[in-house]
Simulated scan of single mutants.
Amino acid sequence: MTRATRKRLWRWLRSVGFTLGLSLLVAWGVGDQGQLLPVFVIGVAAFGLGLLYYLFPRGLHFAFGTAVGLALYASLFVVLGHAQFPDAPDWSRPPAFLLPVIAFLGAVWWRRVELAEVAERQEAADLDHLGHTARWLVFVSLVGLVCFILPVNRLAPGAQGAALLVAMGGIAGIVARAAREVMRLLVDVALIIDEIAGRTRHVAVPAVAFLLMYALLVIVFASAYRIADSLSVHALFHDRDGPTRLSYSDALHFSVATLSTVGYGDIQPQDDGVRVLASLEVVAGQLLLLFGVAEILRSRRARVGTRREEDEDLDPAPPDGHSPPPAAPDGHGAAGARSRFRRNPASSNTSNE
């Protein structure tokens, strides 16, 4: 197996794994909408991915965009259905979910020759095409806005199911007509995700360094909270049941909540000294965000620059990229000829004659 084949296989496995993994996650999440909808989400992901790979075998990268688009569509469908069609029968939800997907895949199949160039593009479009590419989203949003304006949720269950099918049928028509723009948007999203994923390896070391410094602050202040509580005669913290003694795991939980500034929940400080200590931890966390990240990135750039300078010192090269001819120790070569000419230019003229 050649290197190009292995690279292509890895990209295929990565795309398929990401698509199916995200589809399984979303299907599990929408499980409260009945037993059929999760099955349809997984089935649509598998069928759609297989069809797109069959039609555009050289467009492997767009699977990322397809997975993201399917996840967003499933989430918005659940939100819209729960808000405006709460009493719609269970039988109406799977076909309503399938209508836009079938319309899009059918349009892609019908226009597969025209869309091959879009699906196999290797570079994202510039921002000038964004308005034209995303224009179909305006019409889809208008359908959703009409559903929210009209009192559809007050209708009988059967009428809500019919209205849901009509609304999704309208979205299906919009998506089918704008299949090229939808495909272009999915490809652009996939290319951007792939580019970001390619750059993550360059920020891996700074990210790990930041996490280590963050964990150090959490551990130091958690130990301080635990020691202060153990040395105090009275409990310095309260939980839902009143005063409580802090275990080390509780101290870690309280330290993370303090440093992340998400707000106190089940454990709260009840002593002025602990409040001051918590305030210091918050300030330390803000300083880490403001200056720690910048210093980590600056130190990494400095190390990279130093390494490049060392490599240039070990292997210097002339500006034109060519190595100079070796000097002749016995006076031969270009340098020796120039030296002899300077010492006795007459002999050179005599020999030329």
Results as ranks from 00 to 15, higher is better:
L24H: 07
G305I: 06
V189M: 13
V16I: 11
G292Y: 04
W109P: 02
L314M: 06
P269D: 09
V113Y: 08
G17C: 02
P325F: 13
S15L: 05
R93C: 01
E310D: 12
Y248V: 09
F40D: 04
P269C: 10
E123T: 12
P151F: 10
D188Q: 08
L137R: 09
V26F: 02
A209F: 01
V41A: 08
G65T: 00
I227F: 06
A317W: 12
Y248E: 07
V304L: 15
A235C: 07
A124T: 11
V44A: 15
P151G: 08
L37W: 02
R338S: 11
E117V: 12
Q35A: 11
S23F: 06
T306G: 13
T2C: 07
T244K: 11
V101E: 08
Y248T: 11
H332E: 11
D272I: 04
L22C: 10
K7L: 14
R93D: 01
L13G: 05
V78C: 01
Y214P: 01
L212T: 15
G34E: 03
A67M: 04
G336A: 05
H82G: 10
S260Y: 01
H238K: 08
R298N: 08
R14F: 04
S232N: 12
T200W: 11
E309W: 13
R58Y: 13
H238L: 09
L252S: 06
R6C: 06
G144Q: 12
G65Q: 00
R3F: 13
E309R: 15
E295M: 14
D266S: 08
E123N: 06
H82Q: 14
S232D: 11
L9P: 04
Q286E: 07
W91C: 00
W110D: 03
V205Q: 12
M183S: 15
S260Q: 09
L216C: 03
A125F: 07
R6I: 10
D315K: 11
E281W: 00
L60H: 11
V187L: 07
S351K: 11
G17V: 03
L186P: 03
S23T: 10
V30R: 02
T261C: 09
L37A: 04
V16K: 03
Y73G: 00
I174L: 14
H82P: 01
S223P: 02
P243M: 07
R111H: 13
L289T: 01
A235Y: 02
S141G: 15
A172K: 02
R308D: 12
L236A: 05
L130V: 14
E123P: 00
L72E: 02
V282N: 02
W136M: 10
L259Q: 01
A83L: 12
V26E: 00
D188W: 09
Q33D: 09
W110S: 09
L55Y: 12
